[in-house]
Nucleic acid binder design. Structure first.
Lengths: 170, 170
DNA sequence: GAAGATTGATGAATCAATCTTT
DNA sequence: AAAGATTGATTCATCAATCTTC
């Protein structure tokens, strides 16, 4: 992937305005920005996590168990929390189990369900990986806390709007 | 993917603060927000584009040709503009070509290079797909123009910071 | 019948290796 | 040797279908 000598998003905005007027421009630029930001951030996070045998998706699943009360959760519950499909949970847990960060066990009360439990090695890796992410400021570069909160706030509006979770002020 | 009864990002923020103090919390929440926003937006955009035989990635490639001066670009140049790897450009153009939106032709001056050219059908689809995206406000829901610009602005800082393009205020 | 999880198949994205042209 | 593009292999995510248990 080569170097760019101008802002491609601003450039696209100019083209857009010329062809379709100004009304759609802010939304189009915002979407493109989010897509590009995600691409940049994911690459940085995965680079930092790779030495620990993790991808960002696996890291999120591991942290969910790390913070859970008993260190274990049913796979279905993890899917809802992470907002991914059941198949993805199976794959994520497969990856974590293969590396010894998690074990599978049958659910004591519901024999349909499977429980994922974080191991000691998983806890140690979770701590180390978090340190690694902190060292790169989660990929957010030189952005100040205020800017980060702004970002989180705007996206929160978007998520409520999508029915991601009920509006607490609603 | 089921329903959630609280904000999982805010919840994660509380756990984080308890274990690692407050310094990392804003960055962690911002990253998670961007990831979730991208997931939501991409799903909406792809739903709207699917009737037109497009994914968002293919849409971006098609619009790049749509706005290009001659309606054609070398594949390498497209990769730099879209910030994707050469293999991805090959795959994207394969998809667009299969649907008759683009044709391949040899570069007149450089026999190593391939030129992608948008067809009339491609131009018509580009217009229709853009109308479809406008109708859903590019997936940005009820966000106001000011909020969209805020989002674009913060991400712009992040992108400059990543060396995505040179800082114009340098 | 519905919930929970897994398997096998498909689509998208990157990587390494290859081939041609410069 | 380096640039431009493609092929084949790997990874990841989702989808449809299946199997067990509720």
């Amino acid at each position: 992937v080569g170097e760019l000598s101008f802002d491609p998003i601003a450039e696209a905005g100019r083209h857009w305005r010329r062809h379709w007027g100004r009304s759609a421009v802010p939304a189009m630029m915002a979407v493109t920005s989010v897509m590009r930001a995600q691409q940049l951030l994911l690459a940085r996070l995965n680079d930092a996590l790779e030495p620990h045998g993790l991808t960002f998706a696996r890291y999120e699943a591991l942290m969910l168990l790390f913070f859970s009360r008993r260190g274990s959760l049913p796979l279905g519950k993890m899917g809802v929390r992470l907002q991914v499909h059941p198949t993805s949970v199976t794959n994520l847990i497969d990856g974590l189990e293969k590396r010894g960060y998690v074990t599978r066990s049958p659910h004591p009360n519901d024999r349909r369900a499977t429980l994922a439990t974080i191991t000691d090695a998983g806890r140690a890796t979770a701590e180390q990986a978090t340190t690694a992410l902190n060292e790169i400021r989660f990929g957010m570069g030189s952005l100040k806390a205020g800017e980060l909160d702004t970002l989180t706030g705007v996206v929160r509006r978007l998520r409520i709007d999508a029915g991601d979770f009920p509006d607490p002020d609603g």
